[in-house]
Design a protein around this nucleic acid. Structure first.
Lengths: 129, 129
DNA sequence: GACATAGATTAGGCTCACCTAATTCAATTG
DNA sequence: CAATTGAATTAGGTGAGCCTAATCTATGTC
């Protein structure tokens, strides 16, 4: 399975929900993402086939190791990109919305460059205070 | 017609081709974008309906005023975003590829913030030399 | 133990943005 | 002027990613 924007969103959603609650069910993902339950159900099957979500255990959704690592890196992009945008003066809401789309489309090379730049920027701002 | 990524790409392609040649035909757009002629043909009809491309004049494709202004602003995003990425050390090819996708997904607010930052950065680099 | 309710899945359908194959149309050449 | 070639369009089709309606399953309540 080639991982596209949509798949990354489902993984990220499961991951983020799991940071706040210990039981993550398809219906929670559906609510969070604003999609119907059947849509989420289909996707969970695809993600299980792709070994990114554990086969049904009866205790909610669980990412596999591969799924976790993918979700984590998408989420890291989200955090860093929002941070970059906010540090340029963009409002938090807009920064988050834009990060949410851009996080799926940017290459590793560009992401790493932005991250590096942002981190050194943060350092120099921290140093000022 | 709500303008999506795809529509913006067709407009941008017509615009960019017209910078280099005086006759821009659907077949040129198809070659440039790597799509089939029927796909381009359909889209030209949609863009004509949306008053973004002039009704067939027999002298190739021409953007309307609205089409030109839209295409120009997408192209500006492309140029600025590539510039931002390259100024962070990203290779020109990757910077262009990423700009090509990101240009359609970023809000005005974030784009303007990036542009401003990039311009002031350029100035300070220029000042050093 | 029957019933209501919440969650999950199945079946079937829709739109979007692409495709190929076939056709039409116009210009160019033998 | 008939034949060829290149461009444009029409017709029909595909896959991705969503949807609703209906059904199945489990859980909690009287």
């Amino acid at each position: 399975m080639i991982i596209h924007e949509a798949a990354e969103m489902y993984l990220e959603s499961i991951y983020v929900l799991s940071l706040h609650q210990d039981l993550v069910r398809p219906v929670d993902v559906a609510r969070e993402m604003g999609y119907s339950k059947p849509t989420v159900s289909e996707w969970m099957a695809k993600l299980r086939d792709a070994k990114l979500v554990e086969p049904d255990t009866g205790t909610g959704l669980h990412l596999t190791e591969a799924g976790t690592s993918l979700a984590r890196s998408v989420y890291e992009r989200h955090v860093v990109l929002s941070g970059v945008f906010e540090s340029l003066g963009v409002s938090p809401q807009t920064a988050a919305d834009d990060a949410c789309r851009v996080e799926h489309y940017i290459s590793d090379e560009t992401f790493e460059a932005l991250k590096k730049h942002w981190q050194s920027n943060k350092k120099s701002i921290d140093a000022e205070n």
